[in-house]
Design a binder for these strands. Structure first.
Lengths: 109, 109
DNA sequence: ACCACTATTCAGTGTTACTATCTACCGGTA
DNA sequence: TACCGGTAGATAGTAACACTGAATAGTGGT
């Protein structure tokens, strides 16, 4: 999708994935697929896994290994209270930025 | 403002500054001051200058040195057609992301 | 002579997403 | 058996970006 999207995803991809997990627990492959469905066709698989590893290291998610009928076992991630708090903070930050940019976008025409 | 804002600014700070320049030409110190007025109190001065250098290297702006009554000469930056095009692309990218995140934010409550 | 304000530059650091590749498990087919 | 496509995850190396912290420099006022 271009270099601008790549840079813009830094800082928002985390929130994107957290928001998906907030709706319901999921595993990496599934999250990638859902992002692709929503139009983020260029997000690399490896990138999503890296995000999930970071979440685990920061203690924002709980992990459970679940055997799969097709393929190797899945690592199912679910948001814990710390993750929910982190997500709340993300929304506050994003709202602030979104508001300012929205004003600039309107004012510029 | 926190680490989340720092990361979220990657990719959006460029657009922020471009949008400011689209409204009218400006120099670095002035841009920093305007950002601070708008609530971006934690954006480092050095960061803004780095953005402007990148713009110059990419050929998105025209530069003019103007003597100042107070202090050293100013480098006044103005958006050129390439910069305007880059800004248009930024808005398209941001709109896409903003729409998706907006949906997730609404759906999550 | 000193200080506060204005104005720009730069080296070094940490975080992040991408690329590319590798491992591994399963079912179906030749 | 041997192979392949789809599912699932891990990892080393790279590029881009914002921040920290400091340095440099010009002007006016005390």
């Amino acid at each position: 999708m271009g270099k601008q999207m790549t840079e813009m995803l830094k800082g928002t991809l985390e929130g994107l994935v957290l928001a998906i997990l907030a709706a319901r627990s999921a595993y990496g492959y599934e999250i990638t697929a859902r992002l692709r469905e929503q139009g983020f066709t260029d997000i690399a698989e490896g990138t999503v896994y890296a995000v999930l590893v970071r979440f685990e290291q920061k203690g924002l998610v709980d992990v459970e290994k679940v055997p799969s009928e097709k393929g190797p076992p899945r690592k199912v991630y679910s948001l814990n209270p710390a993750g929910q708090q982190y997500l709340d903070e993300f929304w506050r930050t994003w709202s602030f930025l979104s508001e300012r940019l929205g004003q600039l976008h309107e004012g510029g025409r």
